[in-house]
Write a protein that binds this DNA or RNA. Structure first.
Lengths: 125, 125
DNA sequence: TGAATATTTCAAATATTGTTGAATAGTTGT
DNA sequence: ACAACTATTCAACAATATTTGAAATATTCA
């Protein structure tokens, strides 16, 4: 994971249409949807849809494969989750105690934060 | 969580400068940093820094408080994590079995995905 | 082959964002 | 009050992103 990849992913999800597309495809998981189905469900005209799908594929948030005359798209959820890890990987500079308090202050954080790795600063005093 | 909040957050993190700012502040956890320190560390001129900090605060990714003549900024990590939950909350339409396979296909997904809630479609056949 | 369907490419118009310097506002210490 | 310091606002300009229709490409089916 690096800055270039991360900003491209965030840029991709910063458009309401692209966010709708991604969330719709998350729902359909491994089955995915073809472009026409997406356009019909979200009411986006084909030319514009193509523009946004291209952006999402280039960001690697979607994969695409040809299926006869259709294009089938699927969401790449793991990429999104890798990015969260990237955002939080140096949380509190690895200071276990400080980071525990930081999480405690905001309860919902426990659900998704990567487990503390207990590196360098394992024991404070 | 809703679309408006989510796109604003993604928009905020789609700029390299703003991503750098957020990640820097994650490192400093509950201590945060004042604007001048951020600008010095990231080498961003004050006017431009102010522009980006404002965007991040408006997106609620940063909190800010006055400290004498300084402004101290802190990262709001839980918001970021709430958004991941929002993106994945209807994964595979709640079909437990399908979703399990979807996760299995991409190993790193286990680390951060919210636990399966086992709703409607608990038993297939 | 020819008609119908699915999707993309291209170019033009519009809209939104990012950057910079000059001026402004608030805070501290003398 | 004054000078030094921190940071923001404003206005101009530059750079990017989004939307649309018309034309092009590619596939299926009769």
């Amino acid at each position: 994971m690096n800055k270039q990849i991360a900003t491209t992913v965030f840029e991709s999800l910063s458009s309401g249409i692209r966010l709708d597309i991604f969330r719709l495809l998350v729902k359909f998981g491994p089955d995915g949807l073809v472009a026409g189905e997406i356009g019909k469900k979200l009411n986006v005209p084909p030319t514009n849809l193509s523009f946004h799908l291209k952006a999402l594929v280039q960001a690697d948030l979607l994969s695409v494969e040809q299926e006869g005359r259709f294009q089938r798209f699927k969401a790449n959820i793991p990429l999104m989750l890798d990015i969260v890890a990237y955002l939080t990987e140096e949380c509190c500079c690895g200071d276990t105690e400080k980071c525990r308090d930081y999480r405690k202050a905001k309860p919902q954080i426990e659900k998704f934060m990567p487990p503390l790795k207990t590196k360098k600063i394992t024991k404070t005093k």
